[in-house]
């Protein structure tokens, strides 16, 4: 018997769709997350790509590395079974501490033409394309919750938050998106 695939912490909490003029998509992608913290004086390599610099992300072979803090990154990959990303990240282990955060944090995806306008209500950093943009990452507060904000595509953001706070963030996103409408997806 195969293992039961864990649910997203927000499964069942997605608000009912709200029709609107330019609806946003609120998604709950199931991701594996591994926190990488470089050891003193060591340079983590071996994933096949260089870990990104401040405020940037890098992606190769389905693994996205997000800069979190000096010498600290978060790896994100689509769910592929318990511990799969930790196994794939093993080449980093001699130079970095690896912690599986797949259950500690979760990802909320906000997509649509108005996604930047919605985030502008909840978050104080400048998301204008001339400052931010696809591939950029910011550890900041969204709706007063600590959040890793990643612009995955020109009109899509992924917000990585502590799972215990995620329901509040989803609620805040839905409220902020109400004037445009939203639908799961």
């Amino acid at each position: 018997m195969s293992a039961v695939e864990p649910l997203h912490p927000l499964a069942g909490l997605m608000p009912a769709p709200l029709p609107g003029p330019d609806p946003l998509r609120l998604g709950l992608p199931r991701r594996e997350l591994v926190q990488v913290t470089a050891r003193h004086g060591a340079d983590p390599t071996g994933l096949g790509f260089a870990l990104p610099g401040p405020g940037e992300s890098a992606e190769t072979a389905g693994i996205t590395a997000l800069w979190m803090q000096p010498r600290g990154w978060l790896l994100s990959a689509p769910w592929d079974g318990e511990g799969a990303l930790l196994t794939r990240a093993a080449p980093l282990a001699p130079a970095a501490a690896l912690v599986d955060q797949s259950h500690g944090r979760c990802t909320i995806r906000l997509a649509g033409a108005k996604s930047r306008a919605v985030l502008a209500k909840l978050c104080r950093i400048d998301l204008h394309p001339r400052i931010f943009g696809p591939g950029r990452v910011a550890a900041t507060q969204v709706a007063h919750l600590a959040c890793l904000l990643h612009q995955a595509e020109p009109e899509a953001f992924e917000l990585i938050v502590f799972s215990t706070l995620a329901a509040n963030l989803l609620d805040a996103l839905a409220s902020a998106a109400a004037e445009y409408g939203y639908a799961p997806g």
Binding site: P54, R124, A138, T140, Q141
Partner: peptide
């Protein structure tokens, strides 16, 4: 809103500090 420049993250709103 006061912006403070973090040496690593760049200019950020004061409530983060």
């Amino acid at each position: 809103m006061l912006l403070i420049r973090c040496p690593w993250c760049g200019e950020r709103p004061e409530i983060e500090f």
